[in-house]
Amino acid sequence: MIHPSYQELIATINEGQDLDEAPVVSSRYSLVLATSKRARQIIGGAEPLVKVKKGMKPLSIAVEEMYKGEVTILPESEVEAEEETKEEPVIE
């Protein structure tokens, strides 16, 4: 059995959300997208935010980070707003 289970991980991520708002993670699919994105960041050189045990793979590290609350998932509306405020690079 995989630990944490999908249900435990989804419940942990959505913990503390307003009841009026839609949950940040509502399906296994959105959970897989979020963890794979974080795993790619780790592969790309980002420092893990949890203690890494010998032999842990990037995806396992990403799942552990989310389960321990070290990484937060932004709702899609916040991600879009954040992208709009970024300045475009100047190409000369």
Score class of each variant (00 low, 15 high):
67 Y>I: 06
69 G>V: 00
57 K>H: 09
53 K>Y: 03
78 E>V: 05
69 G>N: 05
78 E>A: 13
49 L>I: 07
52 V>G: 03
52 V>P: 04
70 E>I: 00
48 P>H: 09
66 M>C: 09
58 P>C: 09
76 E>A: 13
64 E>W: 00
71 V>Y: 05
50 V>H: 07
52 V>T: 03
70 E>N: 08
61 I>H: 03
57 K>N: 10
50 V>I: 12
59 L>Y: 14
65 E>W: 05
50 V>Y: 06
65 E>D: 05
50 V>P: 08
50 V>Q: 09
58 P>E: 04
64 E>Y: 01
77 S>D: 12
57 K>P: 08
63 V>T: 09
62 A>E: 02
60 S>M: 13
52 V>N: 01
71 V>G: 10
78 E>R: 15
62 A>S: 06
60 S>A: 15
77 S>V: 04
71 V>C: 04
61 I>N: 04
77 S>T: 09
71 V>R: 10
72 T>L: 13
70 E>R: 13
55 G>R: 08
53 K>L: 10
67 Y>P: 07
58 P>M: 06
55 G>A: 08
70 E>G: 09
63 V>I: 14
59 L>T: 14
73 I>F: 09
59 L>Q: 15
71 V>K: 12
61 I>T: 03
68 K>D: 10
76 E>K: 15
61 I>K: 02
76 E>C: 09
77 S>K: 15
49 L>A: 14
62 A>N: 02
71 V>E: 08
70 E>W: 00
77 S>P: 01
51 K>I: 04
62 A>G: 07
66 M>Y: 04
78 E>Q: 15
53 K>R: 12
66 M>N: 07
69 G>W: 00
69 G>R: 02
51 K>R: 15
71 V>Q: 11
67 Y>N: 10
77 S>N: 14
63 V>Q: 12
66 M>K: 06
77 S>W: 12
63 V>Y: 03
69 G>Y: 00
59 L>P: 13
65 E>P: 04
69 G>C: 05
69 G>H: 00
48 P>Y: 03
49 L>C: 11
52 V>M: 02
65 E>H: 06
60 S>H: 12
62 A>Y: 01
